[in-house]
Design a protein around this nucleic acid. Structure first.
Lengths: 349, 349
DNA sequence: TTGCTTCTGAGGTACGTAGATCAGAATTTT
DNA sequence: AAAATTCTGATCTACGTACCTCAGAAGCAA
């Protein structure tokens, strides 16, 4: 057995540093918090002591002393497909956790799909918030509202759906074109060697994430799987009834339909239509977001793969990023990167 | 816009509760920390006030006041395939984070594949540790060593590799049979309709995780893909040179080889042999763990899919679980569940 | 040297909780 | 009713840091 990185049993405190540097607590405090009024020579002495003892501020104690509290707003949609419901619940849990870190989350429900309503909500947001997480829309008015918040010194992160050209601090969500490419590769490989058409169902092509997914999907499908031509994109408006009818029509019209990629919601409609047609097993269906429904369709074999983003991870990540930014702490990039999960029947969590 | 769950701007403190209940701070403290010497009626009054104000202890302040520090040992292997190197690095980062929570991690490097050495290391572990995370071996002596630690009141979590019949607090790692099943489903579907044999390369069948993976793999392959008979399992001892030779021999001997599932390490050898044979594109190769190498093989197209467990998540999860257990806090089960990640070329993080 | 500015030390309070002591009140037992 | 016991309140220190004030030391200019 070889010993490894051993750390001191107790961490050095400001007082230890003061003693080691031969100065007083007040001086160390001035140096550590970059306050004025310390001679360069003394600064150097203190910094040497800090380095030697490996002093690191006790963040909990510091926050306690500062009496800082943070208040964040999470702007979520009023409408409620399963994914958004899950996300809301995860935000509530995150709020619970954050309360232990002296941070508070208010959830505002807004029609995030209406740019004017969303922008209006952001514009009239209480100035009490140091940070905002918002399911954004890539629209000029929303962008302007975000930029204005940022200009006022509010930390803004976009959640799930980005507004890339805005001045938001961070985007917490998946790379949607890559998610589309992932779906296409799965589709192409599951249908290896077979000929037939593939349908793409989006919620709405005015939603940036849906557009990006279908873009990535088509990119790979057309270049690598010429045996699988894609049908024109269908807009299902994330509504189960509508997607049921559209899917039924697709199945009736295209006897050679081999695959369905749904880059939005409305999965219950697709499942109904597929199962009613009796072609559920032969048509490869790939969709997004693991919910109680998609999980069931996956287990049943109607659905072949789910591309997922973890709402729990997204909620926690958004909160961590806002908190870290507001208290001047660094964030660990690779912990905050939202993965594109692939779930098959066999690796369901 | 509709308002959501709004929390009080500042959290209630012990003093607020005392005032609300009409008792003193000392009494509230007694009730909250379940100390003796408070009449039932008073307890009820205090608890009502706690509930009414939604009081929750400020954990940071509590830890500060208690002056508790925790010391954990992470027992990692001396040998160093890429996965274990990544894991070590992630443990170091976790140590860094934990230092901010008044917790300290020592890393002990041990030959974890030798049951006697591993058990010896656990048996002679300094009593200074309140918690241990160990890459376990499912072996009677290791089990006994773990149980003895637990008996002494030390929190033990198994990491990556479990000792299921021991009294460990928690297993932080993936469900290996499920990972094997996932690999089999990918293999079967990527080879849809084709005929041919599939090879399985394990590190060693005396490693529980490798055995479980190949068990899961065979289970699905034999029941659902009769067109793809599996060849007898080959042991590559997680060594690149050996797997190179074994893979080359496989390719030479089996013209109908369609797939390779590697449930251990030694991937560089497999890649070399596959690329040298010129059959890299037609043979479906699925392996475990995303490393700098497997990432490269995936991008290049030699490797078709990686089943991964996130070492960063595992390290943090182990630390969080130990910390929560030692300070009597609850853990959030679904944040601690380690996912079976599937990575294709398109969804690499 | 004197006067002036700039730096430093000493000491304080505060944050929210833990934990201790001790006097005195309330309750029960004798 | 007195004594014994149990409960409660007041008050204190401590944790590690932030932030404040003020006196006085060190350094500099005249």
């Amino acid at each position: 057995m070889t010993g490894g990185a051993t750390q001191p049993a107790i961490r050095a405190t400001l007082e230890d540093v003061a003693r080691a540097a031969g100065v007083s607590l007040a001086t160390v405090d001035r140096v550590v918090n970059r306050r004025e009024g310390v001679r360069a020579k003394t600064v150097a002495r203190v910094e040497a002591a800090v380095a030697k003892l490996g002093y690191r501020a006790d963040l909990a104690a510091a926050r306690l002393a500062r009496g800082q509290t943070f208040r964040f707003a999470f702007v979520l949609p009023t409408g409620s497909n399963s994914f958004m419901t899950n996300l809301s619940e995860q935000v509530l849990r995150t709020a619970d956790w954050l309360a232990g870190q002296r941070g508070f989350i208010d959830i505002l429900h807004v029609d995030v799909f209406d740019a004017d309503v969303l922008a209006g909500a952001l514009e009239t947001l209480s100035p009490a918030y140091q940070g905002v997480a918002v399911i954004a829309l890539d629209h000029p008015r929303v962008r302007a509202a975000i930029d204005e918040l940022v200009g006022r010194g509010v930390a803004v992160v976009t959640l799930v759906s980005d507004a890339p050209s805005s001045r938001r601090l961070h985007y917490v969500g998946i790379d949607n074109p890559a998610a589309g490419r992932t779906a296409a590769t799965l589709m192409g490989r599951f249908l290896a060697g077979r000929e037939g058409t593939v349908a793409v169902i989006a919620g709405s092509l005015s939603l940036r994430d849906h557009t990006e997914r279908q873009f990535g999907f088509h990119q790979i499908l057309s270049s690598e799987y010429p045996n699988l031509p894609a049908l024109p994109v269908i807009e299902g408006r994330d509504d189960s009834d509508r997607t049921r009818e559209l899917t039924a029509a697709l199945l009736a019209r295209h006897a050679d339909l081999r695959g369905i990629y749904c880059c939005g919601a409305g999965n219950r409609g697709i499942a109904d239509a597929l199962e009613a047609s009796g072609r559920a097993r032969e048509v490869v269906w790939i969709t997004h977001e693991l919910t109680q429904y998609t999980r069931r369709f996956l287990v049943r074999g109607t659905l072949d793969a789910v591309i997922n983003q973890d709402p729990g991870h997204e909620a926690r990540s958004a909160a961590r990023i806002l908190l870290a930014h507001c208290s001047g702490e660094p964030i660990s990039a690779d912990q905050e990167r939202i993965r594109i999960d692939i779930f098959l029947r066999d690796n369901l969590p």
